[in-house]
Design a protein around this nucleic acid. Structure first.
Lengths: 364, 364
DNA sequence: GTGAAAGCGCTAACAT
DNA sequence: ATGTTAGCGCTTTCAC
């Protein structure tokens, strides 16, 4: 009942053995006899012993502590961080997470971890702009699209499978002309765009790319512009209002769910219904997508699987740091929700009202 | 150029002095002569020395490392975490953050920190349900509404000022009947509701409370129900549709911005315009509120100020742990954006053109 | 199988 | 003003 923490020495004294034996016994080392080990573990339990990770890390060259760096302001990242933390703990490991959003450069977050002697690290979505290749000790495992550090493993999500499923889904619903709201420049956006272009061209679906970005506001702004453009064009061409429809497009795909969220709000604010007037789909299968408020059809990028692979590999590298760097791809899969439906022109025409008349010129 | 880290010994050898002198010099201890100190610091810089925090924490009883626990899935929490981290680093401190969302109980997150010998901690919005009072070492400083640990300081946001400003704002805009979407049961929601009730009654504004919750989906669901109820009532009473308005209420206040976001989507989906038909206001001044997509009028709860106070106090308690627990309240303030406007019945009626007023004239 | 001893890098008490 | 020594709690040789 002392105020100070319980140490190995306390257990050793209680059991009547040595500190080193206790240390071995607690880590289930076979050298300690069963009987003594049980006695030691029971006493440890009883005294409420918890290993002092500082002492452990000071001495050990295979510490049970991993680092994770990611941006705490991005849901996908904190999702990874939570899963990694939970899974690590189940396996007797600890992870400490550093917030890349609190540093000018993600490399600085890694340097802070290094000050805690944490050298086995998982970096979430770093880019080449972070210049991690200049680091002496870069990340051990990278979750993302680019191998930013020569020696790091890369766990990556394959866009192809998800893009294919999405194209097939929209095709089956009768969509033949889709607007894609692209992410900001970068490898991630680039590869996704190309996967989508390939998939949609396979179904002969027109696939027009518009610059947007990764945030809700990016989607909102881009969607507002698209509506204005489309309506201006159609008013000019047909001398009539097309409010209530989105010109040539019956569906919009966004770079990610955040972007799609902004698109959805812009459309709804203009009086368009989702999915009756426009179908919407995104990437990441995030909380927004899963919410009943938006309920977005979205491509799940296999977060759980990627996290498990990254953790496995990081743990493996604690004891064997010299493994050669591998790249592992995980298939993405479409999750269908209520934001996608049959293209509006396939439905029984709405009763002609003051705002109606849109979609009449559609050639299927 | 060695592969191993630079230690105090390396510097000592390079300069030709002792390890302990280097240790003192690097911490600007006055006992070391200016000349030697400069020489040591220059060499340290040159060799790229960074203190090994494990070694430091092992020995020191006033370590420069703080802990923060909060939920990484809540924007307000990660906002606190980022600010605390940046501010701490500026002052030469380090913070390691634990994700309460990855544990069954927030107390377990504190126990993990304890294993890293981190005993000076800031807990973000813990509740009595976390039973921190059963902990030997509870948090040092609490950011939230309840003192969950006897010895902890409490940094709290005062609802009164923000509620008063909000009531005044809505009154000035002509609103006389407001719906409030309450948070889930708990001290935080309770105190906010009471502050709002008092403020609105001061302006003789009708203030009806509806149960909702803290999430977007909570707001969405509650708003959908409210619209259904209101329209059913009005149709019955007046034999006419009231679509386009929200029955007896010209404004809705939500427990927080997330909730309001759900409300906004529900309203827009039903063809109501914000703020033309309904004004909307929330709490927290979160990213959602600041976004151009939603641009919500919201009560800023003084996050920056609270974080600064919490950090000050935590640092103070590193060297003086026995300070008596204090409670500090920070005034909240209304941030006016475009989701609030004059009550709809004060505006000139909208022209009855076919295309006028996007989305209002939806025939469903 | 078990214990004694060394030492990770640092800070703090104690010498000079 | 500087150096010497001790030791934080742990893991890891290395003896026995």
């Amino acid at each position: 009942m002392s105020h100070t923490r319980v140490t190995l020495r306390d257990i050793a004294e209680a059991v009547g053995t040595s500190i080193s034996t206790v240390s071995l016994a607690l880590r289930d080392d076979a050298r300690v006899s069963d009987k003594l080990r049980h006695s030691i573990q029971a006493t440890a339990q009883e005294l409420g012993y918890k290993v002092d990770l500082l002492g452990s890390m000071m001495r050990s060259n295979t510490p049970h502590v991993l680092g994770v760096v990611g941006r705490f302001d991005q849901e996908l990242h904190t999702h990874y961080i939570r899963i990694l933390g939970e899974a690590a703990r189940e396996r007797g490991y600890y992870v400490i997470a550093e917030n890349a959003a609190a540093y000018d450069h993600m490399t600085d977050a890694l340097k802070t971890l290094a000050q805690f002697r944490i050298t086995t690290t998982i970096a979430i979505n770093p880019s080449h702009e972070d210049h991690m290749d200049t680091l002496r000790n870069g990340p051990t495992v990278v979750i993302g699209q680019e191998r930013v550090f020569p020696g790091a493993d890369l766990m990556t999500s394959r866009n192809t499978s998800g893009a294919e499923e999405l194209a097939a889904h929209l095709y089956a619903l009768g969509h033949r002309s889709v607007a894609y709201f692209d992410g900001a420049s970068g490898v991630s956006a680039q590869t996704r765009k190309q996967a989508l272009e390939r998939a949609f061209s396979g179904y002969n679906i027109r696939f027009d790319v518009f610059p947007a970005g990764a945030t809700m506001d990016d989607g909102f702004t881009a969607a507002s512009h698209l509506m204005a453009d489309q309506w201006a064009q159609y008013r000019h061409a047909h001398q009539e209002s097309t409010r209530g429809r989105l010109g040539e497009y019956s569906a919009i795909v966004g770079y990610n769910d955040q972007c799609v969220q902004g698109i959805a709000v812009a459309l709804m604010g203009a009086g368009l219904r989702i999915p009756a007037d426009v179908s919407l789909a995104g990437f990441d299968n995030s909380q927004v997508a899963q919410s009943s408020t938006f309920n977005l059809t979205s491509v799940d990028r296999g977060v759980e699987e990627i996290a498990a692979l990254a953790l496995d590999r990081a743990i493996e590298r604690i004891s064997t740091p010299e493994l050669e760097a591998v790249t592992v791809g995980v298939d993405s899969h479409l999750v269908i929700r209520s934001s996608t439906a049959r293209a509006y022109y396939l439905n029984t025409p709405a009763p002609t009202s003051a705002t109606g008349g849109a979609g009449t010129n559609r050639n299927l």
